[in-house]
Nucleic acid binder design. Structure first.
Lengths: 236, 236
DNA sequence: GAAACTCCTAAAGACTTCCTAAAGCGCTCG
DNA sequence: CGAGCGCTTTAGGAAGTCTTTAGGAGTTTC
């Protein structure tokens, strides 16, 4: 059960939109298009993409600023397009959080290859985007924002699902409290660790068979939390 | 607190070695250099780097093949350098596992920026290297602040882990008490040597097979402590 | 408008960390 | 030989981390 990777294409020039959107769709990606930085930042919240292709020459906000703002709240890969080939432009964008920088004019296959490279890091190792993760008797459905345990269809709130999805995507690896707080509440938000404690408690109450002896959502004291996919953990 | 990232530079052209190695060193990276694909593959095993800068034009093995072989065994980021700017070359290298592709001639600052981008993914936000380091028969897991000795998974407290990580990074070299105190409790803190004594005792109790006859955490009287990787110590 | 829901705030309690204190061991030097 | 110093080791308690529950402000839904 795989789902298509969702790519947000941010470019105000219609000819480029006309060229790139169908190209990307033809490779099986699901494409959202917008033409301004403001829309882009908004869409990252409302309809989080798996990757962003960002043209630096936007009519409203400067492209590097868009890059910076997105990076404050999300670690989604950003591939920058730009007509400016100067070294200083590249360095600025890359240091502000862009993952790649492609100078116009560019070959379509090169762009596609660089998109594949960036997506390789988002999705699991088999290269196929995973719309669903099955762990034990827990199934996480990213498409529907749902979790199914056995026959039971568990409804989560947006924040609960975000937390679960975040941890499950980095399954078996520890995410620090800081990382989680930044990912869910945003970098500049005044998120306190306490927020995370209670969210975690609610989530455990919903998906753990025995909330006081978690199977999936394990705490690594003084470090962070970890989503466990199997008996790779130490004793209770 | 943080260790320098180790970069393996693979290039057979001496002028490029002469230019890049000092440049990278000047930015605080630790650099290994080699000139053939065979050496590169060997070094990835023997002295695992945090990032590889790989010139495609090697005398022995084709660069893309080197890329593929490294990728079979390691997920270390690879930044490719090449004189060939054809789209098909770029696509081939990127699809075989390269993380970036820089065409010669390139500006030094652009290369540095792309190196920073690739390293961003290896090191977590605290600047600590992600993953594991193997020292002697002790595996230090930076992700989970844990130590694995044989089958045993030992949980350390933050301070204990910091002390161990500090000493292990300078394995087989003596760190003075002052150095350790400053590193762990901060330069201006009113840290007393006594704090270090008891922390060391607790750490030894956890990771030493026989805490009163330490194998790893050796004390150098009147000087400091040393992490020993094996029976290379000069006892009396 | 009322009801339902999400999410923040507060607080009690179990548990862990780590500073402090103090006793003990071995080495060096008077 | 004994005093002094550097280091080891143990123990207790203040401070901190994390779990869990409950209540209420703000928002959405009908």
């Amino acid at each position: 059960m795989t789902r298509a990777a969702r790519i947000l294409l941010v470019d105000d020039e219609v000819p480029i939109q006309r060229a790139l959107a169908p190209l990307l769709r033809s490779r099986g990606y699901e494409i959202d298009v917008c033409g301004t930085g403001r829309e882009a930042i908004d869409l990252v919240h409302r309809h989080p993409p798996d990757l962003i292709v960002l043209d630096l020459g936007l009519p409203d906000i400067d492209g590097t600023e868009v890059c910076r703002r997105i990076r404050q709240e999300s670690s989604v890969p950003i591939v920058v397009l730009s007509a400016r080939g100067a070294e200083s432009d590249k360095v600025a964008a890359l240091d502000l959080g862009a993952d790649d920088y492609v100078t116009k004019p560019f070959g379509p296959e090169e762009l596609l290859a660089r998109v594949r490279v960036a997506l390789r890091r988002v999705f699991n190792s088999d290269g196929e985007p995973a719309g669903r993760i099955q762990v034990g008797d827990l199934a996480i459905d990213y498409d529907r924002c749902r979790v199914i345990r056995g026959e039971e269809d568990i409804r989560l709130t947006p924040k609960e699902f975000e937390l679960l999805a975040l941890l499950a995507r980095s399954a078996d690896r520890v995410l620090t409290h800081r990382t989680i707080l930044k990912a869910i509440w945003g970098a500049n938000a005044v998120a306190q660790p306490e927020h995370l404690w209670v969210l975690m408690a609610q989530l455990r109450k919903k998906i753990e068979p025995d909330p006081s002896h978690p199977l999936y959502l394990l705490s690594e004291p003084w470090v962070g939390y970890r989503f466990s996919t199997g008996p790779a953990d130490t004793d209770a």
